[in-house]
Each structure stands twice: as structure tokens, then as C-alpha cells.
Design a protein around this nucleic acid. Structure first.
Length: 256
DNA sequence: ATGGTAGACTTTCTA
């Protein structure tokens, strides 16, 4: 089975892309971020006609996450338990035997800002929650837009995207490493990969054409799933389409 | 020279 994560940057704008792409790839599970839709506007009927069930939580203008699946999702969890957060960034659900945790991690704006402090606090709360969840759900996939590039291989220019820069700063990378230390593996790095593959390119400065990207959309799989993970990658194709999201889907394949 | 593009929806904020 194949599981994808895609930051669509407004599902309202990107629905035609999503519909075309679902038909091309026929994924089993899709985690969406930045839907930017209030729940009453979520296109669950249209997705249902394409063979996908949806669970979702959103808000106007910002944030918003969803899980689409061919099998119905169960045990839906909205947000991080105990974390006061008005921003709709987290949804988790069980699909088959898999616990799917979809994260739209805080961007953080710039190192040292209030938003950066919020990002680090938010990541701490997610860490504490995931540590508990792994006890309940050993077969776990934590995926989404992490807004953190794990290491120098994951940025087009490590001199620019360095230990003092947002998305690559030491504290952000340490927070990601602490999460992985719970027994979660970056599926992309479990397999041979070409150099210079990214999942996000800024809309500005013709960044996609010049491949000035970062790999910030990640799929972390738990120890219990590691042996089943047969491949992982990034689907650049929808980033080449007209009026694209600035992110490309990241995927993993699990053997049955 | 603190830029540039896109989205939501405001004369700006967020990414």
C-alpha cells in the first residue's frame, strides 16, 4: 500500500489537481496540510465520489489538515491532547492496522521570533504526545509538512540554510531528532535516493525551475513498520502543473 | 534594495 503526504496550500484552489492526481496515483492514504477550509466547506462529497473517505479539521485562511483513505478511518483525534492551540494543525486516525498522525508543523517565521518560540513549544507537546501514542499504537506513521529539513542533504544550499536559519536551525533539528529517537525513522532515508531531491520550492525567484528546494515534507515510520517499508520518494509531477502548490507529495510504500 | 510570489481577504498576514 502507498501512503502520501501533500501540503496543497488551499484545497479550494488545488481541488482540480487533487482530483487528477488521485486518479493517476490511486493512493491508499493521503495526509493533506494547509487545506485552509472551514469544515462545512470541505469537499467530502466530491472525494467520496472518487472513492475516498475523509476526516478533517480546518479553519478559514490558515492551516487545516485532513486524512483521505479508501478504507474508512477510525478513532479520529483532533489536535494534541492537553495542548491549547487555536490553530488546526493535527489530525490522527486509524486506517486498517495503521495509526496515521498528520502534522502541519508550525513554520516559525524566523529564528528568535515569537512564532519560532511557539514552534519549539509546539514540537515539545507533540513529542510528549507521540511518546504516549506509540505505546498504544506501535504501528504508527507520523507524516506531514514538518517545516524542518533534517540535514544538509535536504537543502539546495547548506551555507544559506544553516544552523541559524529557520527550517534548519539547531533547535529545530534537535526537536526532530528527539521525535525520531522515540523509534521513528525517516522513510526516505531508509532507501537509496538521488541527490538534490526536495519537496518544497518557494514560489519566488523561479525556485522550482532552478531546483532551489528543501525536503521538509517527511514520513516517519515506527520500528514495527520498518521491515515492511519497501520504498519511499517524492512525486514532483504535480509541482510542474499550472498553478501548483509550492509542495510536492512525499510517499512511502508498505508491503502487505 | 530587507527584495521575490501565491493565497486569503485585508489594505496586510503568512508562508
Amino acid at each position: 500500500m502507498k501512503i502520501y503526504s501533500w501540503n496543497v496550500n488551499s484545497l479550494n484552489v488545488r481541488m482540480p489537481h487533487l482530483e487528477t492526481w488521485l486518479g493517476l496515483r490511486v493512493p491508499d492514504v493521503v495526509a493533506l496540510q494547509e487545506t485552509k477550509l472551514e469544515d462545512h466547506r470541505f469537499p467530502d462529497t466530491a472525494l467520496s465520489a472518487l472513492g475516498y473517505r475523509s476526516v478533517f479539521v480546518g479553519q478559514k485562511t490558515y492551516n487545516g489538515v485532513a486524512i483521505l483513505s479508501r478504507e474508512p478511518a477510525r478513532e479520529v483525534q483532533i489536535g494534541v491532547p492537553g495542548l491549547e492551540d487555536e490553530q488546526r494543525r493535527v489530525i490522527a486516525a486509524t486506517v486498517g492496522e495503521l495509526r496515521i498522525v498528520n502534522l502541519y508543523v508550525v513554520n516559525g517565521q524566523d529564528v528568535g521570533t515569537d512564532k519560532y518560540a511557539y514552534k519549539l513549544r509546539w514540537l515539545d507537546a507533540v513529542h510528549a504526545w507521540i511518546a504516549q501514542e506509540l505505546q498504544r499504537y506501535p504501528q504508527m506513521i507520523v507524516l506531514g509538512d514538518f517545516n524542518i529539513a533534517p540535514d544538509a542533504r535536504d537543502v539546495y544550499d547548506p551555507a544559506v540554510w544553516n544552523e541559524d536559519h529557520i527550517l534548519t536551525s539547531t533547535a529545530e533539528r534537535e526537536a526532530l531528532q528527539r521525535l525520531q529517537a522515540l523509534g521513528l525513522h525517516d522513510a526516505y532515508r531508509l532507501h537509496p535516493q538521488a541527490e538534490g531531491e526536495f519537496s518544497w520550492w518557494d514560489y519566488r525567484q523561479a525556485a522550482f525551475r532552478r531546483n532551489l528546494g528543501l525536503r521538509i515534507d517527511l514520513t516517519l515510520i515506527s520500528d514495527a513498520l520498518r521491515a515492511r517499508c519497501t520504498a519511499a520518494g517524492i512525486d514532483r509531477e504535480p509541482r510542474t502543473w499550472d498553478r501548483p502548490s509550492d509542495h510536492a507529495p512525499a510517499w512511502v510504500e508498505l508491503a502487505d
